[in-house]
Design a binder for these strands. Structure first.
Lengths: 222, 222
DNA sequence: GTCTATAAAGCGATAGAC
DNA sequence: GTCTATCGCTTTATAGAC
């Protein structure tokens, strides 16, 4: 599990995020890590339900069937729990975005790739996205979470540059504003976290397809 | 945002004490005192900044230059403040929506009208929209705010019916999902409250125009 | 209409027993 | 690894003086 650059400068390594290498050891370190991972997942469910600020450490402890004080055996603070969730999300999505950009396909395919990646995170990173939307204003003013703003800036550059390239190549209409269009896309994707539930009529890629259809060609008949 | 600027003038609400003797304005239901209105506006600014739950009554009192206890001379509870803000917003937007629907224009014009109304509320109802987005999950489970869900359902029906009518008349493509499309539009408009600030490059109707352009015809060149 | 003063509950976090 | 017990602080809200 490589720790990519989204949160460099952190004093100590954190346990692996989801999808990482499985620990096979049966030592106490491995058990501790699994316990910790489990608690992070419980916290994530609650954050996804109502956001970070609105979730109390007592809520998390209740969910785990322990007392709130016991949580502090595993975590320094409530902040460090959400940090773990957010950093995992940002590391993953940034890496995926960069890969698509580096493939250097034409702007239409690149935009479609970015959109698909974004929709694909709705399910596995529901908590991070909810927190991002509900608690952004609070978190961005906390020194520890400065990496959020840095990552967002990098992401914006990727999208806006791609849209501009598409306009220069005559693929996208010249009379749309690249930054405004980026925001429209970004917001529409993330906000779906409020109502999207896997197992419904459409999965996240069906949602992405519908969105790409409307975004590229509009709802008008031609 | 400073204390006095929003309500310059501060006319005659003086002789009316409290304790029963209400001032009857011209009209029916006793105009709320201007002091009260001023306080609601201050609270709204704070709710718009960081949401309802994250705003404390002390924050509101500080902004007004009084102590938190003094607020309870004007309001029953923090809930009743946000209720006033939300009810005002919903009353206004529902009336405006209904008017557009009742004009019975063709679906394209009707959708454009609804979109313009929605964008038009971004500025005057910033607080209500922010609260709607940040605290919806919390508020909808409070009995007092059951009207929020009812209004939302009615709004959804208006949009979805209009989109379906447009499809039946051959104006909108048949391969888009009406409900999904409604959600896309709704979310994209409201989420703009996070970054839209009047006085920027585009006003809210410029934003609406850009959005309608993309939504009707897409970003592709044809 | 605002103040002083405070209640009752909840918050994040800590210390030390087991 | 969890519990008991609690600290210091903040929260919404109330009572009564002025």
């Amino acid at each position: 599990m490589t720790t990519t650059s989204a949160n460099s400068g952190r004093p100590r390594n954190r346990a692996t995020g989801e999808g990482g290498a499985r620990r096979r050891g049966k030592g106490s370190a491995a058990l501790a890590s699994e316990r910790r991972e489990h608690l992070v997942r419980l916290a994530a469910e609650l954050f996804a339900e109502k956001g970070y600020q609105a979730t109390t450490v007592r809520n998390i402890a209740d969910e785990a069937g322990i007392l709130s004080g016991s949580l502090y055996h595993h975590f320094d603070s409530k902040e460090s729990i959400v940090d773990e969730i957010l950093a995992g999300f940002f590391n993953e999505i940034m890496a995926a975005y960069r890969k698509v950009i580096d493939e250097g396909k034409d702007p239409r395919e690149t935009i479609a790739g970015l959109v698909r990646i974004a929709f694909g995170t709705l399910e596995p990173h529901r908590a991070a996205i909810t927190v991002m939307q509900n608690d952004w204003n609070h978190l961005k003013s906390v020194e520890r979470f400065a990496y959020l703003t840095r990552s967002e800036d990098e992401v914006e550059r990727m999208w806006v540059d791609t849209i501009k390239a598409g306009q220069e190549q005559g693929l996208f209409r010249p009379d749309i504003d690249p930054k405004l269009t980026y925001r429209m896309i970004r917001d529409t994707v993330w906000v779906a976290v409020r109502w999207f539930r896997p197992g419904g009529r459409l999965d996240s890629q069906g949602l992405a397809d519908h969105y790409l259809k409307v975004m590229f060609d509009g709802i008008n008949t031609h």
